[in-house]
């Protein structure tokens, strides 16, 4: 991950998303109108969040199997970035809902599920804050990370599908599939998803590198003090 090509790709894709997302032609739909452009900025946040949280859980599992400081650092960094994506996703969604649904918080099942998903990861960081022993903190938070992720699966992917929702893609509301014929939107949407995910990975790798360096410095100081 130290090569620079994917960072350049990330910048190029996001510049393209910003320009194309705001300027290119979009289909005209009632009520939604120009807010359909939120597809390029709001939906990729959730893609990014799910990818980041999955990576976080992946490293949590790895930590439980082969405990190491590195896997804990990786897991936390991805959880942080995933949380940032989630908060941005909620905010962009609220801005969008304000114009199409009439109020920022509409009590829609998808909105509520997203809010609960964020609560889980807030709780994760509170748990990390309240365990003093480093090794124990890493192990307990890894266990909670996996547990919460699994418990979230029915919440995020099953229950919202059992209830009706006003969110695009549910109950007759136009969703992404309606735009299947409109390849213009896909032309911007897919690059934007990749771009945002790459940006998330970039931020996470920066955090990881800082933490690894701090760890190294701590070790050296420990040796000096011996």
């Amino acid at each position: 991950m130290k090569s620079t090509w994917w960072k350049i790709a990330c910048v190029v894709l996001l510049v393209y998303t910003a320009v194309g997302g705001l300027l290119f032609d979009v289909p005209r739909l009632n009520i939604v109108n120009e807010t359909i452009r939120a597809l390029y900025f709001h939906v990729p946040m959730w893609f990014g969040m799910v990818v980041m949280f999955s990576l976080s859980v992946f490293y949590a599992i790895r930590h439980l199997r082969h405990p190491s400081v590195e896997s804990d650092i990786f897991s936390v960094a991805y959880a942080y970035v995933g949380l940032a994506f989630g908060i941005l996703g909620i905010i962009t969604g609220m801005i969008w809902a304000n114009y199409t649904w009439g109020s920022p918080w509409h009590g829609d099942p998808k909105q509520n599920a997203a809010a609960i998903a964020l609560l889980v990861y807030f709780a994760y960081f509170i748990l990390r804050g309240s365990v003093a022993n480093d090794e124990q903190r890493a192990r307990l938070s890894a266990a909670y990370n996996i547990f919460a992720f699994v418990a979230m699966i029915p919440l995020l992917f099953i229950i919202p599908r059992m209830t009706s929702s006003m969110h695009p893609g549910n109950g007759g509301n136009p969703g992404f599939n309606t735009y299947d014929l409109d390849s213009r939107m896909r032309l911007v949407f897919y690059p934007s998803v990749i771009g945002w995910i790459l940006l998330g990975l970039w931020i996470a790798t920066l955090r990881i590198r800082i933490k690894l360096m701090e760890e190294k410095i701590n070790e050296q100081e420990d040796e000096k003090n011996k």
């Binding site: 889980v120 709780a123 509170i126 748990l127 309240s130 365990v131 003093a132 909670y144 547990f147 919460a148």
Partner: peptide, 18 residues
């Protein structure tokens, strides 16, 4: 963890909500 009683409520709420 420390302050385990508060933590218990915070940790469990999102998990049992489904």
């Amino acid at each position: 963890a420390s302050n385990s009683n508060i933590l218990m409520a915070v940790l469990s709420f999102p998990v049992v909500i489904s």
